[in-house]
Nucleic acid binder design. Structure first.
Lengths: 290, 290
DNA sequence: CATTCTCTGTCAATATACTTTCATACTAAT
DNA sequence: ATTAGTATGAAAGTATATTGACAGAGAATG
């Protein structure tokens, strides 16, 4: 048995460079539902991935199997090893590594943070924030702190894609007064502030609120002092086995806000997407791919 | 679908009285290696139990399946539920909201992406990357694309905190040649490239690799063209119910890399943290709080 | 001991699954 | 633009899986 010792997953990873588009589709389907997807017949497997049967046959050969039946058997052996093996892992993180490997500890912690964050989410608040973010007639300002600057940037890039009138307030607080000068009632300030909370951000929130701007605040589990000022506050958990706090939950909430905003303001957003696509094509800065 | 709701195991128990000797043999084989044994072809399954093929066919009909293929599919679904089930299960997100609320759909998708990403992670690769990132005697360059610029920025901020000699290559590709000019063998380039893959990044990776720089690439599930050039590649899943791809898994992997690097280079890192703290206190730029 | 009933395997028929071949579409490079 | 190379799916061919029909073996019963 020359195949032993390598899982199908490993084989896919090994060959990931040399796979074609259709073959990648197949792998995606398999990995999304591993290994069950590959235990069906080659025909069903191919249909699931919207490719032809021969493509599937070719792929498993590329992975080093003589034919689909051999591939099938390899998967079966993995099921045997996994299911009848030692106590079932709850999430199969990095299957090869021990439980106390940093990857697995980190993964568990992040999972916990995400569910904490969403469990503590008030959906009425969420929807109110989305409505505010989707109000394209008002300017949207985005700002972050030392660490969360990156998140603010990410928010800016995405919101700029889905709606007009977005402004990224740079992290240099010296320039903030200029922005405040032009703020009008009803406008929106999306602010990120996590420990160590920054006094400047707190002051900025105050100034903005004074001018009738709605402040949407993404902060950590303890809550920035700006909480009292903000119209909507979202607490994001960030405990991980390290000296700093994780911002994954914050980013997840941010992405959820973006997704919801986009959903709300479809089809204007779609129009923007299409136009952006055309521009990219014209400039040929980016290679198009499916 | 009258079959749903019962596992094959339960069905066997249910019918255990009315089974014949040969059928018992089959069930014994299946239960001894459940469910892998039943996932083979009917012929192999029968041979394993030293009975004839039709006997197996008759048994699965007795259990309530129309034929062997249906039995086969039921087992496959059990595998699916067992292996991917615990991960999929919702950690009752926003409990008040319906299941199809965008928050819940989004949360489920992200959860899936995270476990996909970590399940496909090669821990040897991960550790090699961490060793490279912790090699403080070499310069570390960080670069990202249009969307991933924010992640590169986040990486920069953190790596700058835990080690010296970190350079953030700005997203304006016009300046990249200047950085390449000074690159030396053994140095590290941490690159982010997700769809739409950017030709400039690909070229940069090539130039860096030519000069003996190790390229660590964080890309999406399909894989940037730079995959072929990179020393270590990490695929991060990003499917979410929206028009764009999520980068949460990428950020999680990044944070994991940062955490592992920090763990590796403790206590130098601790020293830096302490000194940074002192500086913050001195400048009083940031308010200290627990 | 014969008879009947059930169980089981052999064999053939049929339906899938799998593979190979080949024409077309696409990509990338000149 | 042209051309070489690659990737892909349609279709035909081949192998295998699955099922149905039948007959022999074994146990229980009269």
């Amino acid at each position: 048995m020359p195949n032993s010792g390598k899982t199908v997953r490993e084989r896919i990873r090994e060959h990931s460079d040399s796979l074609t588009t259709s073959e990648r589709k197949l792998c995606a389907v398999l990995l999304a539902n591993y290994p069950a997807a590959g235990l069906a017949s080659i025909t069903k497997f191919a249909q699931d991935a919207r490719v032809s049967t021969p493509t599937a046959a070719r792929m498993v050969q590329k992975l080093g199997f003589k034919g689909f039946p051999q591939f099938h058997q390899a998967l079966r052996q993995e099921v045997e090893a996994k299911v009848s093996g030692p106590t079932q892992r709850r999430a199969n993180w990095a299957a090869e590594s021990p439980d106390d490997h940093i990857i697995n500890r980190f993964g568990d912690a992040v999972m916990g943070n995400l569910s904490q964050t969403f469990a503590n989410l008030d959906s009425a608040n969420f929807e109110a924030a989305v409505r505010q973010l989707a109000a394209t007639e008002h300017q949207l300002y985005v700002v972050g702190g030392r660490i969360t600057r990156a998140l603010a940037d990410y928010a800016f890039t995405h919101f700029q894609t889905i709606r007009p009138n977005v402004t990224h307030m740079t992290s240099s607080s010296a320039t903030w007064p200029h922005y405040v000068l032009d703020m009008k009632p009803g406008e929106t300030l999306l602010m990120f502030d996590v420990r160590r909370y920054e006094t400047n951000l707190h002051r900025l929130a105050g100034l903005a609120a004074d001018r009738g701007v709605k402040v949407i605040l993404l902060t950590d589990q303890w809550g920035s002092p700006a909480t009292r000022i903000a119209t909507q506050t979202f607490h994001c958990w960030g405990e991980v086995p390290s000296a700093w706090d994780s911002n994954i939950a914050t980013m997840m909430l941010l992405e959820a806000l973006i997704a919801a905003t986009q959903e709300q303001s479809w089809p204007q957003t779609k129009d923007r997407y299409d136009r952006l696509d055309d521009l990219f094509d014209m400039t040929r800065l980016f290679r198009k791919s499916t």
